[in-house]
Design a protein around this nucleic acid. Sequence first.
DNA 1: CTGAAAGCGCTAACAG
DNA 2: CTGTTAGCGCTTTCAG
Lengths: 339, 339
Amino acid sequence: MATIKDVAERAGVSKSSVSRVLNENFEYMSDQMKNKILKAMDELNYTPNSLAQSLKKKTTKTIGIILSDISNPFWSGVLKGVQSECMRNEYELMVSSSSEDPSIEASNILNLKNKQVDGMIINTAGKNLELFDDLIKESYPFVFLDRLSEDLKADTVIVNNISGAKKSTEYLIDQGHKRIAILLYPLENRSPRIDRLEGYKQALKENNIPIDKDLIKICEHKSESGIKATQEVLKLEDRATAIFSTNTILNLEVLTGTRKLGMKIPEDVSVFGYDDYPWVPLLDPPLSTVSQPAYEMGVKAITLLFMRMEEKKERKPVIAQLEPELKIRSSCLPPKQLD
Amino acid sequence: MATIKDVAERAGVSKSSVSRVLNENFEYMSDQMKNKILKAMDELNYTPNSLAQSLKKKTTKTIGIILSDISNPFWSGVLKGVQSECMRNEYELMVSSSSEDPSIEASNILNLKNKQVDGMIINTAGKNLELFDDLIKESYPFVFLDRLSEDLKADTVIVNNISGAKKSTEYLIDQGHKRIAILLYPLENRSPRIDRLEGYKQALKENNIPIDKDLIKICEHKSESGIKATQEVLKLEDRATAIFSTNTILNLEVLTGTRKLGMKIPEDVSVFGYDDYPWVPLLDPPLSTVSQPAYEMGVKAITLLFMRMEEKKERKPVIAQLEPELKIRSSCLPPKQLD
DNA sequence: CTGAAAGCGCTAACAG
DNA sequence: CTGTTAGCGCTTTCAG
């Protein structure tokens, strides 16, 4: 690989002049010199070593992102948003995955720092408080994704999970349901999960429907857990007439669990899901879900990050909250007893 | 950020010694010195600047990947495989997206080279022959993903598309279908598409079923195209009794198109799709598809890349071909006329 | 066992 | 308008 020295020699000029054309400081440069250098670059097929440039300039034009699971379609949607904005701004993107493990996340963060990324976007797995605190103290630019941290003051983009859950629960209530089950993954101090449960509870309370613990199911990450929970709420003495599932995986498990019981959706039980994809309308039955703007979240996150990176002086963190949208399809019907 | 100089001064030793502990060259070092340095590092919260290390060592411990579309669930599956192997080997991953555009791809490749990635994995959009040729000439390590290039000799991982298409077409034939339509995206010289069409044709030929151009539909990338194609083959005088869809998007459009016509799957028409995901069994109807090992492809690709990176001497490129697997569900039935 | 010195490829004053 | 110089943070001979 040719270096700046090579082209300087070939063009018979100094490295500084070559560097000038690299950085397009043509202002005080003769056209003759400029062309000589351009020619030499071309002949040598020269291309600058970003490593060296970055070492000097103290900026790498690359940002890092840490996601819990890149193959989850929700996250790959936000990834796409981030990536496309990066490209538009000529930044490179380093992608890591934490698998929801705080210690992996911590080492990811350290690695990215060592690689000198100009900023990071983190869908944190939790914990690591001191680490983030350090980042903030040294004003290392970063933004939190999809998880609000009470204790930490940092830029954050989230979607309104309370309203997403509340509206869908209300939709079910409006249809006449009173026995509405909710399926969640372990709360683990994660705001999306907590807020979805909260939205569900608010909707019930405001409609004077008692909150029944038997209808609140915390499922494990292992695959049968949602199926089992579904069957449990459906076999209760006073069974659920509607199920509210709070994530992509659980949506599928609710459908499976119901089917295994020989019950039909929406005739025997209504189902409202979370997250929307092109294939959701083609499920059996077409599932009503709350749709989160994944791509826009990615765009928003990187936009906040770029803002933060450009600003020299401190400023208060901003929380960008996007609104989810209800997609009503045909997986819900009034409960039978009301027919 | 503390530098090696800082810790050297604090420990009262030379930079070289600090460097030695960084690189774990403890062999000829007194324990006393070692501990002194470790202590200083700790106190300063020192962490090495990978940029500087890389500039010197000529290796960045990061690899690049260029995908056509990161939010496509197939690609995010392979991405996950690549990413997890990277992490296991302590490599960082830079992700770009070409959006199927050769000129974007070319600039992605150049950017990654400038950033000095140690190797790249490319799901090429085609063209760029000279560029790849250059890479090969300078023996820059890279591997092609999911697309076989006749002209170029480079490591490649693909899945057997001929057999995938052939087997599924045969499955349809075995059920008694003779009017089998196939939906494809424009061939554009891409081996997966070409091979799937080839597999389809082979199956027909070997079973003495004439190949009918009216049943071979090349669809545009715009969303209504597959729906329209579906309706066309279903409205033919001698209509299709089965449809073979060759990618995730088209699967969905075939379902939609059929439904719009008021026809039922599999009673009125059988459908066989491509690519398998957790939600495919829950579609209406549960779709039979050929399942490609996305994650394994990613793992295989990065494994080949690492091999290539380690080897000093040239060697013949290897083509790793994985086998797809048929997932039989309930979207196919013998054609009505045979009942 | 440890340090001095040169240099990776590039940038940025500072002279001239 | 152009070149000289010093250095970014680290590694690596080569002496000692």
